Amino acid sequence: MDLYQHFRQEEYPFIDQVLSWREEVTNRYESRLTDFLHPREQRIFKSLIGNDETLKLDFFGAWEDAERKRAILTPFYEEITTESFEVELLQAKFPEKFVSIEHRDVLGAFLSAGIHRKKIGDIIINDGYIQILVAKDITTYLTTNVTSIKKANVQFDNVSFSQLLDSTNRWIESTATCSSLRLDVLIKEMYQTSRQQALDLIKKGFVKVNFQTIEQAAFLLEEGDLLSVRGKGRTRLKELQGKTKKDKVRIIFEKLN
């Protein structure tokens, strides 16, 4: 059976990378630590490793509902601890009364400073504080080069995981039946728009699936996909529940509140 038939063509390079990691750990008995992976990549990683009893796979993203996580693949006898993931929690305070800072502002500041997205985990903003999980090897660079966000001066410092802010992410679960798993059809159902509005959003490049801009209305979504629409928020396709007697697809999806 062709392994690749279960995945999208654009995912083949990541699949090859995971298979290479698996071979390294199996043959050299060395652990392999990844950069931060988004949910779809985590799902692929899990499916490729499967129930291999000679290996141990674990993920860490600090928050219980973390979206982005680092993965570590080790021989089955290795102990995995928080320290194994080589991450640090950074925190900065900003004057909430005078400036409003959102997730995109923080991420934009990091990217403008030349920091790669794959080195950054989740970003939490709550009660005038910003927290972010980062790979240890960029901590010094980040704290030195990111000193302002949206005209507010900030200073990021290392804090203990015991000081984790409450995540403000709240996913609201809903059910629906759809004629297909096409991107335009699911946008219509998940965001309560017309089919034409969904098509317009896709054509304008306002739609991302698993953080990649998708401009094909016929693109087919799969269980676990994360969908974001500019100005309308994020949803994820949590579960496929088979078909109805009228051949429609039953889905469970979640929308970020």
Rank of each mutant, 00 (worst) to 15 (best):
Q5C: 03
Q9S: 08
Y12S: 04
I15N: 00
T26Q: 13
Y29I: 09
S31I: 09
G50T: 10
G50P: 01
G50V: 08
E53F: 09
L57N: 11
D58G: 12
F59R: 13
D65W: 02
A71W: 14
I72C: 00
T81A: 03
T82N: 13
T82A: 04
E83D: 15
E88I: 11
E88G: 02
L90M: 03
Q91V: 07
A92H: 00
K97T: 12
K97P: 00
I101V: 09
I101Q: 06
E102R: 10
A109D: 01
I115V: 15
R117G: 10
I123G: 00
I124W: 03
I124Q: 14
I125L: 10
N126C: 10
D127N: 15
G128H: 06
I132V: 15
I132T: 12
D137G: 06
N145W: 10
S148I: 04
I149P: 04
K151E: 04
V154E: 01
F156H: 02
L164M: 09
S167C: 07
T168R: 13
C178K: 08
K188C: 07
K188W: 03
Y191P: 00
S194R: 05
Q196D: 06
L199P: 01
L199S: 09
L199Y: 12
I202Q: 11
I202A: 11
K203L: 01
K204S: 08
G205T: 09
K208H: 02
F211I: 04
Q212Y: 05
E215G: 07
E215W: 01
F219E: 05
F219D: 04
L220H: 08
E222Q: 12
S228G: 01
V229L: 09
R230E: 03
K238N: 13
K243R: 15
K243I: 10
K245R: 15
K245E: 03
D247G: 01
I251K: 13
F253V: 02
K255I: 04
L256P: 11
N257H: 05
